[in-house]
């Protein structure tokens, strides 16, 4: 019961954030309206989260930056999860493909992730699309490996052999028997991936390699605000805490989902609960 409550609360809070980001910009002052007279104002009734160095409303920028940051993270997650899932399924199930695909993934993962992403972004020019491509490339091997190990476990089950005895082809078996049994884990993986994507996306736009200003993102808001860290700390704290909150909520959802999906994790969790109760 407690497990489900965590899941519902965390997912609900995330849903609320998404809703705010989608709906609220309509009601808030313009994102790009500069007002040099009212620059670096602390939070007040007129400007709930203060203003930045150009006198722009931080609340508006935060909410609208959320569209870019959340949207892009979601897109990256979907792309990386999809490619990772396909590669993981194929390489876990077909031994010949496995040798090739996994060596490629190993080589891939031996590059430091953020530097690889930077190199890609610089060579292709910073934009939404390059960031999408760069981060998809980075996250694919991680997903692929997790999925593959699960596929290997499923493929050794007797029902895969039974499918063969029943005359089912390999590809169909992969689709009908392996994929559905891997799916729960893939869902957990998606949530974990989303949290990681948010963090790396923040770092990329902080470094100026993501969506370029003046379009606000949480990452580039921190980058712009860091010169005023002492005089106007809210410029950094507000987007920073927001990223943190989102990642924290995603991780909560992730571990609650894992417990729901993986009986071993669930048993562990219940035992811990029991131990705390008996001592």
């Amino acid at each position: 019961m407690r497990r489900n409550r965590t899941l519902v609360l965390a997912a609900g809070a995330l849903g609320l954030i998404v809703l705010i980001v989608l709906v609220l910009p309509v009601f808030l002052p313009s994102v790009s309206a500069t007002d040099p007279v009212h620059r670096l104002l602390p939070p007040s009734a007129a400007h709930l989260l203060g203003t930045d160095s150009y006198g722009r409303d931080v609340a508006s920028r935060l909410v609208s930056g959320g569209r870019a940051s959340l949207g892009l993270s979601a897109l990256i997650t979907v792309c990386a999860a999809a490619t990772g899932l396909v590669i993981g399924l194929v390489s876990g199930f077909f031994r010949a493909a496995d040798a090739v695909l996994m060596r490629v993934m190993d080589a891939w993962m031996s590059f430091p992730a953020i530097i690889l992403a930077m190199a890609l972004a610089i060579s292709l020019g910073a934009s939404l699309w390059t960031e999408l491509i760069a981060l998809t490339v980075i996250f694919t091997p991680f997903t692929a490996r997790v999925i593959r190990s699960r596929v290997l476990a499923v493929a050794s089950r007797a029902y895969i052999g039974a499918a063969r005895v029943s005359g089912m082809g390999r590809w169909k078996t992969l689709l009908v028997h392996v994929f559905p049994n891997v799916l729960p884990l893939a869902l957990v993986q998606v949530v974990v991936l989303a949290a990681a994507a948010m963090l790396v996306d923040g770092a990329m736009s902080f470094l100026g390699l993501g969506i370029a200003p003046p379009t606000p993102t949480w990452g580039n808001m921190i980058a712009e605000g860091r010169s005023y860290l002492v005089t106007a700390p809210w410029l950094v704290v507000v987007p920073g805490v927001t990223i943190m909150l989102c990642v924290f909520l995603l991780n909560l959802v992730g571990s609650a989902l894992r417990q729901a999906v993986d009986p071993r994790a669930r048993t562990l969790h219940e035992l811990q609960r029991l131990r705390t109760r008996t001592t």
Partner: peptide, 26 residues
């Protein structure tokens, strides 16, 4: 072939009817 362990030789996500239908279809 009938497998040793009925636990692992049946796909946990398929109903009995779907399991029995598999060879009939294929």
């Amino acid at each position: 072939l009938i497998f040793q362990d009925p636990q692992s030789s049946l796909d946990p996500r398929h109903t009995a009817a779907r399991i029995i239908a598999e060879p009939l279809r294929e």
